[in-house]
């Protein structure tokens, strides 16, 4: 799982180096303005993004014969891709794994952003499929919130918190705190 994180960081920094050409000017020689324009940098949505997340997931679950729930905290990592419909709204899908518990999480949902440069805050709601290594898959609703720091126009890093409400199992829920690397293209 570390491999894709490294790959994504390489991809992110590699692409940041390949900047778009400088916007043209109207005071240059005749024809110097052709083929350039600033509008790519000013779009209000229409961007895709990819992000990796890595952190801890605390899974609360019921153990048969015991009165109190047990909690197990392990490392979690995953990857997500999304599309910015507007500069404040995106749709995304994601895949994550809680490593030592062999739990896979497939999610799809929306995210809303509010920018207070250089920070960007977001709220998210996902529908999620909780897929344990043994036993049935379960559906969960996962609200979350987070903050990102804008390193460049395309690259962000951030922290987020999400809580899984697993509807079919009242004794099962997950709290996750994640570090994120988010790249737009």
């Amino acid at each position: 799982m570390v491999r894709w994180l490294v790959l994504m960081l390489c991809l992110a920094f590699g692409t940041v180096g390949a900047e778009e050409p400088e916007p043209g000017r109207t005071d240059g020689p005749e024809g110097s303005e052709y083929g350039t324009g600033g509008y790519r940098n000013y779009r209000t949505g229409g961007e895709f993004y990819i992000e990796g997340f890595f952190g801890s997931a605390s899974v609360d679950f019921e153990v048969e014969g015991e009165r109190d729930n047990q909690s197990e905290t392990d490392l979690m990592s995953g990857i997500g891709v999304g599309y910015m419909v507007e500069d404040w709204l995106s749709f995304q899908v994601g895949y994550g794994v809680i490593s030592d518990q062999d739990i896979s999480l497939l999610s799809a949902g929306t995210r809303t952003y509010s920018d207070y440069l250089p920070f960007s805050y977001f709220f998210s709601v996902d529908g999620e499929l909780f897929i344990p290594d043994q036993g049935d898959s379960k559906f969960a609703v996962v609200p979350g919130a987070g903050v990102e720091l804008l390193l460049t126009e395309k690259l962000r890093v951030g922290l987020s918190y999400q809580h899984d409400f697993v509807f079919s199992d009242e004794n099962l829920d997950i709290d996750r705190v994640m570090a994120r690397v988010h790249f737009r293209f």
Partner: peptide, 13 residues
């Protein structure tokens, strides 16, 4: 309730 709150935030955007 969480879902409704998050959707409200979405609508505010």
């Amino acid at each position: 309730a969480f879902l409704a709150a998050a959707m409200s935030v979405t609508a505010c955007g």
